[in-house]
C-alpha cells in the first residue's frame, strides 16, 4: 500500500528539524472534505493542543498522521521522513470509546500491547516487557490495578491505562485524542502532569483537547482547526479571542458559558484573561 505521494517522497529527508510537518493535506470522506489543504508545523519538544468545534476534523488529523485514513492529497512528514516510515516513533492514545472494554484482557496486558510493535511478528512479550509495562502503570498510578479486567475500571482509569500503553511505546511524537474527555478532575491533573513530564524529557505531544479554559495552563503550542487551519503557533501568540471566534464562529459563547461580547469585537489579545476567569471549574475548589 505505497501511496503515490510517498513514492515521490520515498527516502527524501524533508524538514528534519520539525517533529511533524504537514503539507497540503486534504482528507475527504465520500467526497466531502473533512480536512482542507492543511499546512502544519509542530517543532520538537512542545506540548501542543489541537482545538476546534465538533466536526472540525481533529480526530481525522490524528488518524491521517498515523496512516489510519488515506489522504486525498498532501504529504505528512515525521521527523523529516514520510510518516508511514516513522510509525514506530509515534505513540497513540485513541479515544476511549474506540475499543470494546468488555474484551477479556487485563490492565497489564493492554499496556503490554504498546510493546508489540517493538517485538514484531510472532515474538511473545516476556519478563522485560512485563517490567516495562509495570513501570508505566506505576507512572500513571495504576499499578495496583494491573490484574483487573479492563471493564472494571472507571473512565478516568481506562484513560490512564491507554496513556500507560502509549508510554511504553517510548515514542518521540505522541498523538492523543481527547485524553481528558470524561475524566474526573484528579485524573485530568494527573494526566496533564504526565504530559508535561514527557515534554520535559524532550518528547513532542499533540493533544486533541476540548476545553478552551485550560489551554494556557496546560499547553505551550496551539493549533486552531476548523476543516482548515485557522491559526497555529506558540500559544501566547495564537490564543486570542479573535482567533477563537474565527475558529468556532458564533458557537463560542454558547459552548463555554462566556458572554458573546467578552473582549469586544476584534480585540487583540485580551482573550486569555477573559477565558481563564470564565466559569470556575468543578475540580478547582479544594
Amino acid at each position: 500500500m505505497v501511496d503515490r505521494w510517498d513514492e515521490r517522497a520515498k527516502g527524501a529527508v524533508h524538514e528534519p528539524s520539525l517533529a511533524l510537518h504537514i503539507e497540503d493535506l486534504t482528507v475527504s470522506y465520500d467526497h466531502r472534505p473533512v480536512l482542507w489543504d492543511i499546512d502544519l508545523d509542530i517543532p520538537p519538544g512542545v506540548l501542543a493542543a489541537v482545538v476546534g468545534p465538533n466536526g472540525a476534523g481533529k480526530s481525522t488529523l490524528v488518524k491521517a498522521v498515523l496512516g489510519m485514513v488515506k489522504p486525498a492529497a498532501g504529504h505528512v512528514y515525521v521527523f523529516g521522513r514520510p510518516h508511514l516510515q516513522q510509525l514506530r516513533r509515534i505513540g497513540y492514545v485513541p479515544q476511549r470509546t474506540t475499543v470494546d472494554w468488555d474484551f477479556p484482557t487485563t490492565v497489564l496486558d493492554v499496556v503490554m500491547m504498546g510493546l508489540y510493535g517493538q517485538l514484531g511478528w510472532i515474538r511473545r512479550p516476556g519478563r522485560a516487557e512485563r517490567r516495562k509495562a509495570m513501570d508505566a502503570l506505576e507512572q500513571v498510578g495504576m499499578a495496583a490495578f494491573c490484574h483487573r479486567q479492563i471493564s472494571q475500571l472507571s473512565g478516568g482509569q481506562q484513560q490512564r491505562v491507554f496513556l500507560a500503553r502509549a508510554l511504553v511505546q517510548d515514542a518521540e511524537l505522541y498523538l492523543l485524542d481527547e485524553p481528558m474527555a470524561g475524566v474526573d478532575a484528579t485524573t485530568e491533573r494527573h494526566i496533564i502532569g504526565l504530559l508535561k513530564e514527557l515534554r520535559s524529557r524532550g518528547k513532542t505531544l499533540l493533544v486533541v483537547h476540548h476545553d478552551l479554559q485550560t489551554l494556557p495552563e496546560y499547553f505551550d503550542w496551539l493549533v486552531l482547526l476548523n476543516v482548515r487551519i485557522v491559526a497555529q503557533g506558540p500559544l501566547k501568540q495564537v490564543y486570542t479571542l479573535a482567533n477563537l471566534r474565527q475558529t468556532y464562529g458564533s458557537q463560542i459563547g454558547l459552548l463555554h458559558g462566556m458572554p458573546a461580547g467578552t473582549g469586544g469585537p476584534g480585540a487583540e489579545s485580551p482573550g486569555s484573561a477573559a477565558l481563564e476567569t470564565a466559569a470556575p471549574r468543578a475540580g478547582g475548589r479544594r
Binding site: K63, L66, G67, M68, L87, I90, Y92, T98, G114
Partner: peptide, 9 residues
Amino acid sequence: FDAGLARAL
C-alpha cells in the same frame, strides 16, 4: 481489541 493500534504498530 484495537485494530487502529495494530495498524499503527
